[in-house]
Design a protein around this nucleic acid. Structure first.
Lengths: 187, 187
DNA sequence: GTCTATAAGCTGATAGAC
DNA sequence: GTCTATCAGCTTATAGAC
């Protein structure tokens, strides 16, 4: 792992544990095992580091989704697989998910970074548009559909995070997807 | 308006515009029109200020909900009214909603504040539990139902925020509620 | 309750040697 | 690319007068 990645990993870990304010560049450098000067060789400013971290986590998310998706015949199957995979990334990458929750609306993330990051997820928009056109999904504003999708994923992940009883994960993933599917399926 | 409220208002405004890190106590005091010393007379530390602000916004949310709710015969009517009212608070109090999104998962908000704030919302839990018992809502884990409810509200609000075309708000509120209702109604 | 004055310590960032 | 040394400025918080 090169220095840049060491720094990004250390920053993610510290930001979610102690917040942006509580995490100085010195702490990040220390956690990464490099010097403060080296940090500023790789990142122009602290804000630059935050933005690059944001883009990096988003890209990790995208690659996970594309890597896990298998060919699937039906439209419903494709969407279910996407939903499941989103949930699993969020559960397996809690640091990344928390970082999004903390910083997605924050002023530290500039508009350019947001646009660059969201450009990676156009394949989701396309899937929904196709599904609406094919009358598999109800005919509503596609952006409302996408908001509903992500909202459902986030709500389920937050439910799992806050209810650490020994409940059957696969069973509840199925229940939650079926609930969401009823709200958007064209039947 | 007394100094304490002036400080809380100024802090909310600055936190969402410039972030926690970018907002010094001096800036807050200046925006509030009082001195830095006075700020520390009312709030023990900056972290104390953040936590008190969090509780204050949550309380404002609760009072809005309780104030707007009118007596309603049917269970579905009650839930629809609650959903609508939640959406309207989030749309009318964008600063508060953004503050939640930014800080709800953050380390600045301590556990005691979270508990104190969530204790105000037990009436929502009770409504859902009753509705499940009455077989108006499907029989799932009540916490999953609550997560789904808040997730649906947040998803809709985020859709409205990101799609500022001149779409009919009331019409879309109806559409979005109907979508969510299909996912939880016991029919 | 409110103000001014003050300070110790930390912050992000730079310069320059290797 | 990485390090050490360094700093100017800002940070939270306090003390004490009114």
């Amino acid at each position: 792992m090169d220095s840049k990645d060491k720094i990004l990993n250390a920053a993610l870990k510290l930001f979610i544990r102690e917040g942006f304010h509580g995490t100085s560049t010195a702490k990040i450098a220390n956690e990464a095992g490099i010097s403060n000067g080296t940090l500023f060789h790789h990142f122009k400013t602290k804000e630059d580091l935050i933005n690059r971290l944001y883009i990096s986590v988003k890209e990790n998310y995208k690659n996970y989704l594309l890597g896990q998706m298998e060919p699937c015949e039906t439209t419903k199957g494709k969407i279910k697989q996407l939903w499941n995979t989103c949930v699993r990334w969020n559960l397996e990458n809690k640091d990344g998910a928390t970082f999004f929750a903390m910083f997605a609306n924050s002023p530290y993330i500039d508009k350019l970074s947001k646009e660059e990051a969201s450009r990676n997820f156009t394949f989701i928009s396309e899937l929904f548009q196709e599904s609406i056109d094919a009358e598999v999904l109800i005919s509503v504003n596609p952006n409302l559909m996408i908001s509903s999708f992500h909202g459902s994923v986030k709500a389920f992940v937050s439910f799992i995070a806050n209810n650490p009883e020994n409940l059957d994960l696969d069973e509840h993933i199925d229940i939650a997807f079926k609930m969401w599917w009823r709200s958007v399926a064209n039947i």
